[in-house]
Protein backbone atom coordinates (compact mmCIF):
# COMPACT_ATOMS: atom_id res chain seq x y z
CA UNK A 1 0.00 0.00 0.00
CA UNK A 2 1.50 3.29 -1.11
CA UNK A 3 0.84 6.27 1.13
CA UNK A 4 1.64 9.72 -0.22
CA UNK A 5 -0.48 12.20 1.68
CA UNK A 6 1.54 13.47 4.69
CA UNK A 7 -1.45 13.58 7.06
CA UNK A 8 -2.43 10.00 6.17
CA UNK A 9 1.15 8.83 6.75
CA UNK A 10 1.24 10.54 10.13
CA UNK A 11 -2.10 9.06 11.20
CA UNK A 12 -0.98 5.58 10.12
CA UNK A 13 2.20 5.96 12.18
CA UNK A 14 0.19 6.67 15.27
CA UNK A 15 -2.06 3.73 14.45
CA UNK A 16 0.95 1.45 13.98
CA UNK A 17 2.41 2.39 17.38
CA UNK A 18 -0.90 1.62 19.06
CA UNK A 19 -1.62 -1.62 17.20
CA UNK A 20 1.80 -3.18 17.72
CA UNK A 21 1.89 -2.15 21.38
CA UNK A 22 -1.62 -3.51 21.85
CA UNK A 23 -0.72 -6.79 20.18
CA UNK A 24 2.36 -7.29 22.34
CA UNK A 25 0.23 -6.71 25.44
CA UNK A 26 -2.44 -9.09 24.20
CA UNK A 27 0.17 -11.87 24.11
CA UNK A 28 -0.02 -11.88 27.91
CA UNK A 29 -3.62 -13.07 27.95
CA UNK A 30 -3.79 -16.16 30.17
CA UNK A 31 -0.05 -15.88 30.89
CA UNK A 32 0.10 -13.05 33.45
CA UNK A 33 1.32 -13.78 37.00
CA UNK A 34 -2.16 -13.60 38.54
CA UNK A 35 -5.77 -13.13 37.49
CA UNK A 36 -6.25 -9.40 38.22
CA UNK A 37 -3.06 -8.62 36.35
CA UNK A 38 -4.11 -10.80 33.44
CA UNK A 39 -7.32 -8.78 33.19
CA UNK A 40 -5.48 -5.48 33.55
CA UNK A 41 -2.99 -6.30 30.78
CA UNK A 42 -5.84 -7.38 28.50
CA UNK A 43 -7.69 -4.16 29.26
CA UNK A 44 -4.70 -1.99 28.42
CA UNK A 45 -4.20 -4.06 25.25
CA UNK A 46 -7.82 -3.34 24.36
CA UNK A 47 -7.29 0.40 24.88
CA UNK A 48 -4.33 0.37 22.50
CA UNK A 49 -6.05 -1.72 19.84
CA UNK A 50 -9.07 0.57 20.13
CA UNK A 51 -6.80 3.56 19.66
CA UNK A 52 -5.26 1.91 16.59
CA UNK A 53 -8.72 1.33 15.14
CA UNK A 54 -9.63 5.03 15.43
CA UNK A 55 -6.40 6.11 13.74
CA UNK A 56 -6.79 3.51 10.96
CA UNK A 57 -10.45 4.37 10.45
CA UNK A 58 -9.48 8.00 10.04
CA UNK A 59 -6.64 7.10 7.63
CA UNK A 60 -9.08 4.96 5.62
CA UNK A 61 -11.49 7.87 5.47
CA UNK A 62 -8.69 10.14 4.22
CA UNK A 63 -7.73 7.64 1.53
CA UNK A 64 -11.26 6.80 0.40
CA UNK A 65 -12.05 3.98 -2.00
CA UNK A 66 -11.85 0.37 -0.87
CA UNK A 67 -9.43 0.96 1.97
CA UNK A 68 -10.69 0.06 5.47
CA UNK A 69 -9.11 -0.06 8.92
CA UNK A 70 -8.38 -3.75 8.31
CA UNK A 71 -6.35 -2.94 5.20
CA UNK A 72 -3.79 -1.23 7.40
CA UNK A 73 -3.66 -3.97 10.00
CA UNK A 74 -3.76 -7.04 7.78
CA UNK A 75 -2.67 -6.15 4.27
CA UNK A 76 0.67 -4.46 4.73
CA UNK A 77 4.09 -6.02 4.90
CA UNK A 78 6.67 -5.43 7.55
CA UNK A 79 8.43 -2.64 5.61
CA UNK A 80 5.14 -0.72 5.40
CA UNK A 81 4.75 -0.57 9.17
CA UNK A 82 6.11 2.63 10.67
CA UNK A 83 5.78 2.00 14.42
CA UNK A 84 8.46 2.81 16.96
CA UNK A 85 10.87 -0.09 17.49
CA UNK A 86 10.18 0.16 21.23
CA UNK A 87 6.63 -1.09 20.61
CA UNK A 88 7.60 -4.20 18.66
CA UNK A 89 10.26 -5.68 20.96
CA UNK A 90 9.20 -9.16 22.17
CA UNK A 91 7.33 -9.06 25.44
CA UNK A 92 10.17 -10.66 27.43
CA UNK A 93 9.45 -11.31 31.09
CA UNK A 94 6.87 -9.45 33.14
CA UNK A 95 9.44 -6.84 34.24
CA UNK A 96 10.40 -6.16 30.63
CA UNK A 97 6.79 -5.70 29.55
CA UNK A 98 6.03 -3.34 32.45
CA UNK A 99 9.25 -1.33 31.99
CA UNK A 100 8.50 -0.91 28.29
CA UNK A 101 4.97 0.10 29.19
CA UNK A 102 6.12 2.63 31.75
CA UNK A 103 8.65 4.23 29.38
CA UNK A 104 5.95 4.46 26.72
CA UNK A 105 3.14 5.64 29.03
CA UNK A 106 5.39 8.40 30.41
CA UNK A 107 5.58 9.64 26.83
CA UNK A 108 2.04 8.80 25.75
CA UNK A 109 0.34 11.00 28.35
CA UNK A 110 2.05 14.30 27.43
CA UNK A 111 1.85 13.31 23.77
CA UNK A 112 -1.92 12.78 23.77
CA UNK A 113 -2.33 15.96 25.81
CA UNK A 114 -0.39 17.90 23.20
CA UNK A 115 -2.25 16.23 20.33
CA UNK A 116 -5.54 17.49 21.82
CA UNK A 117 -4.39 20.90 20.52
CA UNK A 118 -3.97 19.65 16.95
CA UNK A 119 -5.39 21.84 14.21
CA UNK A 120 -6.85 18.64 12.77
CA UNK A 121 -10.20 18.19 14.55
CA UNK A 122 -10.35 14.39 14.18
CA UNK A 123 -6.82 13.90 15.55
CA UNK A 124 -7.70 16.22 18.43
CA UNK A 125 -10.89 14.23 19.12
CA UNK A 126 -9.05 10.89 19.15
CA UNK A 127 -6.40 12.39 21.43
CA UNK A 128 -9.02 13.70 23.85
CA UNK A 129 -10.30 10.13 24.28
CA UNK A 130 -6.83 8.57 24.47
CA UNK A 131 -5.51 11.13 26.95
CA UNK A 132 -7.96 10.09 29.66
CA UNK A 133 -6.97 6.44 29.31
CA UNK A 134 -3.28 7.32 29.27
CA UNK A 135 -3.61 8.74 32.77
CA UNK A 136 -4.81 5.36 34.01
CA UNK A 137 -2.09 3.56 32.07
CA UNK A 138 0.70 5.69 33.49
CA UNK A 139 -0.57 5.46 37.04
CA UNK A 140 -0.67 1.69 36.79
CA UNK A 141 2.72 1.20 35.09
CA UNK A 142 4.31 3.64 37.56
CA UNK A 143 2.88 1.62 40.47
CA UNK A 144 4.41 -1.51 38.98
CA UNK A 145 7.81 0.15 38.66
CA UNK A 146 7.72 0.95 42.38
CA UNK A 147 6.51 -2.52 43.26
CA UNK A 148 9.06 -4.37 41.15
CA UNK A 149 12.00 -1.98 41.55
CA UNK A 150 11.58 -1.65 45.28
CA UNK A 151 10.48 -5.29 45.66
CA UNK A 152 12.70 -8.36 45.95
CA UNK A 153 16.31 -8.58 44.83
CA UNK A 154 15.19 -10.59 41.82
CA UNK A 155 12.39 -8.23 40.74
CA UNK A 156 14.78 -5.29 41.15
CA UNK A 157 17.46 -6.97 39.04
CA UNK A 158 15.01 -7.98 36.32
CA UNK A 159 13.68 -4.43 36.19
CA UNK A 160 17.09 -2.84 35.99
CA UNK A 161 18.14 -5.29 33.24
CA UNK A 162 15.00 -4.52 31.27
CA UNK A 163 15.63 -0.78 31.52
CA UNK A 164 19.21 -1.24 30.31
CA UNK A 165 17.97 -3.20 27.28
CA UNK A 166 15.16 -0.77 26.49
CA UNK A 167 17.03 2.48 26.88
CA UNK A 168 18.62 2.59 23.41
CA UNK A 169 15.14 2.41 21.89
CA UNK A 170 13.86 5.51 23.68
CA UNK A 171 15.65 8.09 21.51
CA UNK A 172 13.46 7.21 18.56
CA UNK A 173 10.38 8.43 20.42
CA UNK A 174 11.68 11.99 20.23
CA UNK A 175 12.96 11.93 16.66
CA UNK A 176 11.17 14.13 14.17
CA UNK A 177 11.66 13.75 10.43
CA UNK A 178 10.62 16.07 7.63
CA UNK A 179 7.10 14.68 7.61
CA UNK A 180 6.57 15.56 11.27
CA UNK A 181 8.31 18.92 10.94
CA UNK A 182 6.00 19.98 8.11
CA UNK A 183 2.92 18.87 10.03
CA UNK A 184 4.17 20.57 13.19
CA UNK A 185 4.50 23.80 11.21
CA UNK A 186 0.90 23.34 10.09
CA UNK A 187 -0.20 22.90 13.71
CA UNK A 188 -1.33 19.32 13.06
CA UNK A 189 1.43 17.13 14.54
CA UNK A 190 3.18 17.16 17.91
CA UNK A 191 6.85 18.11 18.09
CA UNK A 192 7.97 15.19 20.25
CA UNK A 193 11.39 16.83 20.84
CA UNK A 194 9.60 19.28 23.09
CA UNK A 195 8.29 16.40 25.25
CA UNK A 196 11.67 14.87 26.03
CA UNK A 197 12.37 16.88 29.18
CA UNK A 198 8.99 16.22 30.77
CA UNK A 199 9.33 12.52 29.88
CA UNK A 200 12.80 12.33 31.42
CA UNK A 201 11.53 14.08 34.52
CA UNK A 202 8.74 11.52 35.01
CA UNK A 203 11.08 8.61 34.31
CA UNK A 204 13.84 9.90 36.61
CA UNK A 205 11.46 10.65 39.47
CA UNK A 206 9.82 7.23 39.26
CA UNK A 207 13.02 5.23 38.87
CA UNK A 208 14.57 6.99 41.85
CA UNK A 209 11.49 6.27 43.95
CA UNK A 210 11.71 2.66 42.80
CA UNK A 211 15.42 2.45 43.81
CA UNK A 212 16.31 1.90 40.14
CA UNK A 213 19.01 3.65 38.17
CA UNK A 214 18.39 5.70 35.03
CA UNK A 215 20.51 3.92 32.39
CA UNK A 216 23.47 5.64 30.75
CA UNK A 217 22.95 6.55 27.10
CA UNK A 218 24.67 3.92 24.92
CA UNK A 219 23.66 5.22 21.53
CA UNK A 220 20.30 4.89 19.84
CA UNK A 221 18.58 2.42 17.54
CA UNK A 222 16.10 3.96 15.13
CA UNK A 223 14.49 3.15 11.80
CA UNK A 224 10.92 2.21 12.66
CA UNK A 225 9.46 5.34 11.07
CA UNK A 226 11.18 4.37 7.80
CA UNK A 227 9.99 0.79 7.92
CA UNK A 228 13.34 -0.61 9.08
CA UNK A 229 12.45 -3.07 11.81
CA UNK A 230 13.82 -5.75 14.07
CA UNK A 231 13.28 -9.37 12.98
CA UNK A 232 10.67 -9.66 15.69
CA UNK A 233 8.07 -7.54 13.93
CA UNK A 234 7.93 -9.98 11.02
CA UNK A 235 7.06 -12.83 13.39
CA UNK A 236 4.45 -10.72 15.12
CA UNK A 237 2.79 -9.88 11.80
CA UNK A 238 2.97 -13.50 10.63
CA UNK A 239 0.83 -14.46 13.59
CA UNK A 240 -1.44 -11.42 13.60
CA UNK A 241 -2.12 -11.45 9.85
CA UNK A 242 -2.30 -15.22 9.31
CA UNK A 243 -6.08 -15.57 8.97
CA UNK A 244 -6.47 -12.67 6.52
CA UNK A 245 -3.49 -13.85 4.50
CA UNK A 246 -4.73 -17.44 4.32
CA UNK A 247 -8.38 -16.53 3.76
CA UNK A 248 -8.46 -13.02 2.26
CA UNK A 249 -11.58 -11.06 3.17
CA UNK A 250 -12.56 -13.55 5.87
CA UNK A 251 -15.26 -12.25 8.22
CA UNK A 252 -16.58 -13.57 11.53
Amino acid sequence: MKLDDPLTRYVVRLGDDALIMGHRLSEWMSRAPFLEEDIALSNVALDFVGRARLFYQYAAELMGGEVTEDSFAYQRDVRDFTNLLLCELPRGDFAFTLCRQFLYDAFSLPFTQALCQSADPQLAAIAAKAEKESQYHLRRSRDWMLRLGDGTAESHERCQNALEQLWIYTDEIFECDELVDDLVAAGVAVDTRSLRSVWLETVTETLHAATLVVPEAQGAVTGGRDGIHTDDLGFLLAEMQFMQRAYPGLKW
Binding site: E36, I39, A40, N43, V44, D47, Y136, R139, R140
Partner: peptide, 11 residues
Protein backbone atom coordinates in the same frame (compact mmCIF):
# COMPACT_ATOMS: atom_id res chain seq x y z
CA UNK B 1 -7.07 -3.57 40.52
CA UNK B 2 -7.59 -0.40 38.51
CA UNK B 3 -8.52 -2.55 35.54
CA UNK B 4 -11.56 -4.67 36.24
CA UNK B 5 -13.93 -6.99 34.40
CA UNK B 6 -14.47 -4.53 31.54
CA UNK B 7 -12.54 -1.58 30.14
CA UNK B 8 -14.69 0.91 32.03
CA UNK B 9 -14.48 -0.63 35.50
CA UNK B 10 -12.02 -1.01 38.37
CA UNK B 11 -12.16 -3.79 40.93
Amino acid sequence: SEFGSTACKSL
